[in-house]
Design a protein around this nucleic acid. Structure first.
Length: 501
RNA sequence: GCCCCCAUAGUCUAGCGGCCUAGGACGUCACCCUUUCAAGGUGAAGAUCGCGGGUUCGAAUCCCGCUGGGGGUACCA
């Protein structure tokens, strides 16, 4: 029997204070999978109540990142929906939060607090100086009648609205990911948190909760870092007399070194970087699904549809996972190899264009050429962005010397330069006589040369490889020569032995 | 400091009282294939299931303590 019954409405509610990192995508992904698996709705809501850290293009970037990862939403800022608007600053402008904070004020469950930030900072410092272990703020106004609070406000004193947290007792709540036991927090550990800032803008604790209620969110799936503040949320639901959503706190993704959670400030884990670096969204999707969720004891490679079908909250585990780029790379390579030549070629074009190897947009000839080159590197690719480097010598002439590659690379181990030059000259001679420039013919000619000169294939092929590509590591030789064409092959061999004197 | 959460190899994980002499994957190493590099194939090393107590005929699995790690402690989210 499933632990989930009834309708399902979940949301992903990022704040546009920075670009999306993969931890954020994972949270979005799990919400999305949950909605898709149980046939519910996935809502995107922008929580832009942080006026200080607001980043102008962050919301657009976040949405682009989600789309890249293959996530779509049923309701959101760009497409609207029955519970709009889906941007908190707009909802604030409509007076939604003020309506509800007033309700709490009138019920005596919240109060206007006239203590300023500066005063609060001083109080905290003073407490610390006195060796007081933990400072929990409860404003003196919690005892005031509402009229007195309003009088102060009328006199122009700036105020925040704080939750009047109970002094005694405890709050408990259940978490779907942690199952079993309830999480219990003593009220003595709480303080009177700010609900509405002096600017009139609500804080997360208040805004998200009002919106979750109004948008009829049934399951709140968010990162584990929210567990400690959940008691405040439970208290608020009770204050309003609203039904609680089901909580499911997802394990955080730890940094690669295990020291702390992923941060937006570290740009190597920003989602938009993964497109640039040549990651396939389907590989990222698969990788992220496996961060905190598993299907069984051996299945890892799964399509989007398979994951949707198999995803259940029961199989989400509570312990944090560590960011593992090696694993992602492995999956990416696996996914690249599963694509057809044409599909890979198509995905390679933007990277080649960006590197300036082909035109923007690519011509028909360039496209065809890239399709013909793709098999040479297809199974060698781990990141699509490696393609320009691997294919560069097909588009630009490598030359021995200070401007190009080191001529010493031409000379195989245990061999002299003059000897190598002879080898390359012989190869030039042999290849210039090949009638049909095909893989079999080129191979036959070079194998015959190996036999005739009584040399090992390794050193000879190695010298040719360098002469033709300017590097010691390259795609298979015969395929490479054929893709290069007779003219360019011969010209490069000649330049090779000329450089060796 | 205080509060909360978590705990199986370097990493991600399977395991939800006997199928475990702990399974899979990444990474590492070796060998095979081979013109380089990959890919692929075969195999290996790597976990006293963090430690200590219980409960039970029997514990990686349940309970308690400790330790370690992580998170929170803002008029940030």
């Amino acid at each position: 029997m499933s632990v989930v019954s009834g309708p399902v409405r979940v949301r992903f509610a990022p704040s546009p204070t920075g670009y999306l990192h993969i931890g954020g995508v994972r949270t979005a992904l799990f919400n999305w999978l949950f909605a898709r698996h149980y046939g519910g709705q996935f809502v995107l809501r922008i929580e832009d109540t942080d006026e200080k850290r607001f980043v102008d293009d962050a919301a657009a970037d976040i949405m682009a990142s989600l789309r890249w990862a293959g996530l779509d939403w049923d309701e959101g800022p760009d497409i609207g929906g029955p519970f709009g608007p889906y941007v908190q600053s707009q909802r604030h402008a409509e007076g939604i939060y003020a309506t509800y904070s007033t309700q709490l004020l009138e019920a005596g469950l919240a109060y206007m607090s006239f203590t300023t930030e500066e005063e609060l900072a001083q109080m905290r410092a003073a407490a610390e100086a006195q060796g007081i272990k933990s400072f929990r703020f409860r404003g003196p106004e919690r005892a005031w009648p509402l009229e007195q609070q309003q009088e102060m406000a009328a006199r122009g004193r700036p105020f925040t609205i704080r939750l009047k947290t109970p002094l005694e007792g405890e709050t408990r709540f259940q978490d779907l990911v942690r199952g079993g036991d309830q999480i219990v927090v003593q009220h003595s550990q709480l303080q009177d948190i700010v609900l509405i800032k002096a600017s009139g803008m609500p804080v997360y604790h208040f805004a998200h909760l009002v919106d979750d209620h109004l948008m009829q969110i049934t399951h709140v799936m968010r990162a584990e870092e929210w567990v400690p503040s959940t008691p405040y949320h439970v208290l608020l639901y009770h204050a309003f007399g609203w039904n609680l959503p089901v909580f499911a706190h997802l394990p955080v993704i730890l940094r690669q070194d295990g020291k702390g959670k992923l941060s937006k400030r570290k740009d190597d884990i920003l989602t938009n970087r993964f497109w640039e670096r040549g990651y396939l969204p389907e590989a990222m999707f698969n990788y992220l699904a496996l961060q905190g969720w598993s299907y069984d004891d051996h299945t890892e490679l799964m399509s989007r549809d398979e994951i949707i079908e198999r995803f259940t909250i029961e199989r989400v585990q509570p312990s944090p996972a560590r960011w593992n780029p090696d694993k992602l790379k492995d999956l990416n390579g696996l996914y690249i190899r599963r694509l057809t030549t044409e599909q890979v070629a198509e995905r390679l074009l933007p990277y080649l264009t960006k590197a300036g190897l082909i035109a923007d947009p690519p011509t028909a000839d360039e496209r065809a050429y890239v399709v013909s080159l793709t098999p040479l590197i297809h199974e060698r690719l781990v990141e699509l962005s490696e393609a320009p480097d691997l294919l560069e010598f097909f588009f630009r002439e490598p030359s021995p010397g200070p401007e190009g590659y080191d001529p010493a690379l031409l000379v195989p181990k245990k061999m002299e330069a003059a000897q190598t030059a002879e080898l390359l000259r012989a190869a030039h001679e042999a290849l210039s006589q090949v009638k049909i420039w095909g893989i079999e013919q080129v191979e036959a000619a070079l194998r015959a040369l190996v036999a005739r000169l009584e040399v090992k294939p390794g050193p000879l092929f190695g010298a040719i490889r360098v002469a033709v590509s300017g590097r010691t590591v390259a795609p298979p030789l015969f395929e490479m020569l054929v893709a290069l064409g007779r003219e360019r092959t011969l010209a490069r061999l000649e330049r090779g032995y000329t450089a060796l004197g």
